[in-house]
């Protein structure tokens, strides 16, 4: 599962921030994941728990909050806006899997529902980011 690699990125970032901020313990990590990553919350949480074991003292009793941001698009050609959840059922398994690995391949498999253009902006719900890290000094 490549969720592990992303969970590893989150925990590596938390360790870096803890070092920079002189935290002896990280108490809370808030992670936001774009819906377009099509990542299972359960699998990602399992991966996070595995990676956390690398630094048990720093992350003892840490609370990891995971939020999924809905993905939405805006057509650069006609200005139409639409949501990923409205079109994802039309994707076949391979197309869904491609977007799961590399979300930007949405441009290969999705078109603007209004004008059929592949030239659209992923307006929200892409990528993964660490929203906040709390800890004790």
């Amino acid at each position: 599962m490549h969720e592990w690699a992303l969970a590893d990125a989150v925990i590596t970032t938390a360790k870096k921030v803890a070092k920079e901020e002189n935290l002896i313990k990280v108490t809370e990590i808030v992670v936001k994941i774009g819906e377009l990553q099509t990542i299972s919350r359960e699998i990602f949480n399992t991966a996070l728990q595995q990676v956390l074991k690398d630094a048990p003292e720093l992350f003892e009793n840490v609370e990891c909050k995971l939020e999924i941001e809905p993905a939405g698009f805006k057509c650069m050609n006609c200005g139409h806006e639409w949501l990923f959840c409205d079109v994802k059922k039309k994707l076949d398994d391979d197309e869904t899997e491609s977007i799961h690995f590399i979300p930007e391949t949405a441009h290969v498999f999705l078109k603007c529902p209004a004008c059929k253009s592949p030239d659209f902006e992923i307006a929200k719900g892409r990528g993964i980011w660490v929203d906040s890290i709390e800890g004790e000094k």
Binding site: D94, F101, I102, E104, T105, H107, V108, F109, D119
Partner: peptide, 22 residues
């Protein structure tokens, strides 16, 4: 491997994100 060799029309920010993801 991920596009099944279809055309990949990406703008700048999409290219940056795809590189970073890979």
């Amino acid at each position: 491997n991920f596009t099944q060799d279809h055309a990949t029309p990406l703008r700048g920010q999409d290219i940056t994100n795809a590189i970073l993801e890979l």
